[in-house]
Nucleic acid binder design. Structure first.
Length: 802
RNA sequence: GCAGAUGUGGUGGAAUGGCAGACACGAUGGACUCAAAAUCCAUUGUAGAAAUACGUGUGGGUUCAAGUCCCAUCAUCUGCACCA
């Protein structure tokens, strides 16, 4: 009987469905394990070979955990709101809800054909009103706690999608979704005050087990810096407040630069003599996005404000004021004190405009072509009056207490992180549950009226004005104020796609709950997520946003853990055969359906894991996958050479124990590729004996089951007829004492170069081994002087000679 | 420019400072076959008939011993908001 993957895959997938084999309920007699993978956006293209990498990896973990006695929650759902669906719907004139339904059913079919052990009873869909009711509920809580507010923002505007993008969604100055150029536009936006949580988002990251790259990216994104705010007076009635991380260099200030958007310019335009030129410069910089400003690294631009000047509060020196777009209004106070001697950007700007530089830190490094960047805290200050002779750290604390005493400034912590722009002027998103009343202002709708359903529009295209399509529907817009019951208008903006994915892991705990996000009991039992895996591209934003919401929900008593995810790992991308990123336009996309129908889902799963280091990207190879299929066929054919036996045979005892140990450990360390390699080695060894006994075969099937669940279940049924499924078995354990061979080969070296090898017994003592080694190496030792003899246990002998 | 990562056979990739190239693909030769496919066996880092020599981007260093640690350098990839 040959290995018929089509029949076998279907048989077991149907059986798991029918028996609800992976359904999980609260069971306090067992330890729980919550495995989570990022739920997909169900795009029209269907599943991509990249998706299964993450799902298979945590499926292996989940299946192994079940065998180890855990009660495993491994759920799946759909992050289904979003622009591509809306754009597809517009283009093809089909309602986005229908597009979504079709895409989900296609994705689901494809996922099922992979045999992942999801609990499909807990499937969620972010576009389902039963789900987004609670997304809206969380927004109301944020609003009631002052964390959601409206603000006029200079926002990124995509003329093509006609939608405002968060900074995070702008890639290289272009829209992340449609790749069109992004311009700047003023718009009143709902904002979420994520900055209130900046410290906790940084500090708590040390309490969780995230891979370092993720921790670093979270910290860098928040970007906490310690510095000072200092007020500089001016010759007009206005104090310019600057932010600096190096307050001790204040005696080196020779000019000041403010952002083009700074209030000072408009307020004192009558005092600025060259105001016409200044306005021209401002207009020019308005067209640039922040990204363009970044790109302008070659040359600094700027213009002096004539007729106004600032005073250095420390020595009353008059200093000129410039505007330049390298200073951003969104960071610090939108004004910097320029110290060209010790800051590279200031140095370049000063060079271009012929401005003076005063050196205030004495350091050995001295390069005339760049600023003097001192990294040494013990360097001392010069040209700085009362700071002279103090090192950097001492002078910093002295200047801080000085400015605080004189009330001209104070220590200040700053963050790179900005508040989260939360509005979208689009149709296919959760309506924001707020109304505007002339009398009462912005009011959250009554929680009893949730969900606020997205009206079923015929015309869901964005309006050219940039308002949401919902603004055209008077039945939706016109309503009553929940407070005074007078006439009021609904908010017509919708939420960004990030919203639904910021709390979905909570809903999985209790998907059908109609009274709350999830029951307290289910949250207490399943949360936190024990292991969360997803793409590298989400390690900054999605992880940060969902941690923020979780911390807020902690503060209002909904969840009981400060962090949502105990452990976060990320997988590398699967590239096309040509080593480039898979994409439709490159024509190198591999469709998993074709692979599965040709080789079967177990081969597909195995190859996804064998392809390379899980955390690194790897190119797909349609040749290499054959090796995985051959491996499974050999295991299949073992049923023909099956013999009786209740223990490992003596000559295979060591290798079996070693393999169990390695596979057990490698799975935990995301080293799926070497786990598979060691099983391949094992079967090569078994092959040499021309037989396999029942105990050995059963052990092998359990070990392989998390990787290749269909074929292993089938073989178990054929060969053992024990009325038990493998998923009900126990994970094999190894005997640490039987993991080392008694006879091993060690290397013999002369001065670190391999010259020979010998077999030793691990019981042999060192003295004896060195003696044998020297006999073996006699020809090299002849008449030479031995300086040192090194023996590394079970590894090698190295004789150092002269 | 900044930050992070990566450089190992023809290919994907293995190697707690201790025998570089596990495992797999591909290739070559052989068995089976009328033939092909599949399967099985053997070989496969480079040079060399061999002994041997050389080999982990490049140049130094530490060490009895370096793919691995340190310094410098080059190349590639990813992210970015000139973060003061």
């Amino acid at each position: 009987m040959s290995y018929n993957h089509e029949k076998i895959d279907k048989k077991w997938q149907d059986l798991w469905d029918e028996k609800k084999s992976f359904k999980v309920v609260i069971d306090k007699t067992k330890p729980k394990f919550y495995a989570l993978v990022e739920f997909p956006y169900p795009s029209g293209q269907g599943l991509h070979v990249g998706h299964p990498r993450s799902y298979t990896a945590l499926d292996i973990i989940s299946r192994k955990r079940r065998l180890e006695g855990f009660n495993v929650l491994y759920p799946m759902g759909w992050d289904a709101f979003g622009l591509p669906t809306e754009n597809f719907a517009i283009k093809n004139n089909i309602h986005p809800s229908i597009v979504t339904k079709t895409n989900i059913s296609n994705f689901k079919k494809q996922l099922k054909s992979l045999g992942i052990s999801f609990d499909w009873e807990r499937e969620i869909d972010t576009t389902d009103p039963k789900y987004y009711r609670w997304t809206q509920w969380i927004f109301i809580q944020l609003f009631n706690h002052g964390l959601a507010y409206k603000k006029e923002m200079n926002v990124n505007w995509c003329p093509s999608c006609r939608v405002v993008l968060a900074n995070e969604e702008v890639v290289s100055g272009n829209c992340e979704r449609c790749s069109e150029g992004v311009i700047r536009k003023i718009k009143s936006q709902w904002m979420l005050k994520i900055t209130d949580y900046a410290d906790r988002l940084i500090d708590d990251i040390d309490s969780v087990d995230y891979i370092d790259r993720v921790k670093v990216s979270q910290k860098n994104w928040i970007g906490r810096s310690y510095g000072a705010e200092i007020n500089f007076t001016t010759n007009v009635d206005f104090d310019l407040q600057i932010y600096t991380t190096k307050p001790e260099t204040i005696f080196g200030v020779t000019y000041m630069v403010i952002a083009p958007e700074h209030d000072f310019i408009i307020k004192h335009k009558d005092n600025i003599k060259n105001i016409d030129d200044v306005i021209k410069y401002i207009e020019k910089s308005k067209c640039k996005s922040d990204f363009d400003r970044v790109e302008m690294i070659k040359e600094k631009t700027g213009i002096i404000l004539e007729g106004v000047y600032a005073c250095n509060p420390l020595n009353n020196n008059k200093i000129p004021i410039y505007i330049s777009d390298y200073v951003l209004i969104t960071f610090g106070s939108g004004a910097v004190m320029a110290v060209p001697a010790h800051d590279q950007r200031d140095f370049e700007f000063a060079k271009k405009f012929g401005l003076e530089a005063i050196q205030v830190i004495d350091t050995l490094v001295n390069d005339k072509n760049s600023a003097i960047l001192s990294n040494n805290d013990s360097d001392c200050l010069i040209n700085s009056e009362f700071l002279n002779g103090l090192n950097i750290l001492d002078s910093r604390s002295k200047i801080l207490s000085f400015i605080e005493d004189k009330n001209i400034g104070r220590a200040k912590t700053n963050y790179r992180l900005r508040d989260w722009i939360f509005s979208r002027q689009r149709y296919w998103g959760e309506p924001i549950p707020i109304v505007f009343c002339e009398e009462c202002g912005y009011q959250a709708i009554d929680e009893k009226d949730l969900p606020l359903k997205l009206p079923n529009l015929d015309n869901f295209k964005p309006t050219d004005s940039g308002e949401s399509p919902l603004s055209n529907i008077s039945e939706f817009v016109n309503t009553n104020c929940p407070k005074c019951f007078g006439l009021a208008k609904r908010e017509t903006d919708t939420m960004p796609q990030w919203a639904g994915s910021s709390w979905y892991f909570l809903r999985y705990c209790d998907v059908d709950n109609e009274d709350q996000i999830a029951s307290k009991e289910s949250i207490d039992y399943f949360m936190p997520v024990d292991w969360y895996n997803g793409g590298m591209e989400h390690t900054t934003l999605h992880v940060l946003y969902s941690r923020f919401w979780h911390k807020f929900l902690y503060d209002i008593g909904i969840v009981t853990t400060k962090e949502p995810y105990l452990k976060r790992t990320s997988h590398g991308m699967i590239l096309g055969e040509n080593g480039e990123k898979m994409s439709k336009s490159r024509g190198n996309v591999v469709n998993p359906d074709i692979i599965i129908s040709k080789y079967g889902s177990d081969t597909m799963r195995l190859y996804e894991m064998f392809i390379g280091d899980f955390e690194k990207s790897a190119p797909w190879s349609s040749d290499s996958i054959k090796g995985c299929r051959r491996f499974l066929e050999r295991i299949w054919n073992f049923q023909n050479i099956l013999i009786e036996g209740e223990y490992f045979r003596e000559n295979l005892k060591i290798i079996f124990n070693k393999t169990i140990k390695k596979v057990t450990e490698d799975i935990e360390n995301l080293k799926f590729n070497t786990a598979i390699a060691v099983m391949m080695s094992l079967i090569n060894n078994i092959y040499e004996t021309k037989s396999i006994n029942k105990y050995e075969y059963k052990t092998l099937l359990v070990l392989l089951n998390p990787f290749a669940p269909h074929i292993t279940e089938e073989l178990n049924e054929i060969c053992f007829k024990n009325n038990l499924y493998i998923y009900q078995f126990k994970w094999p354990i190894f005997d640490i004492n039987k993991c080392i061979d008694s006879n091993i080969e060690i290397a013999l070296q002369i001065n670190g170069k391999i010259k020979n090898k010998i077999d030793i017994n691990i019981e042999d003592d060192e003295e004896n081994i060195i003696k044998i080694a020297k006999e073996k190496l006699a020809e090299y030792l002849d008449s030479r002087h031995i300086i040192k003899e090194i023996y590394i246990k079970n590894r090698l002998v190295n004789i150092v000679v002269k």
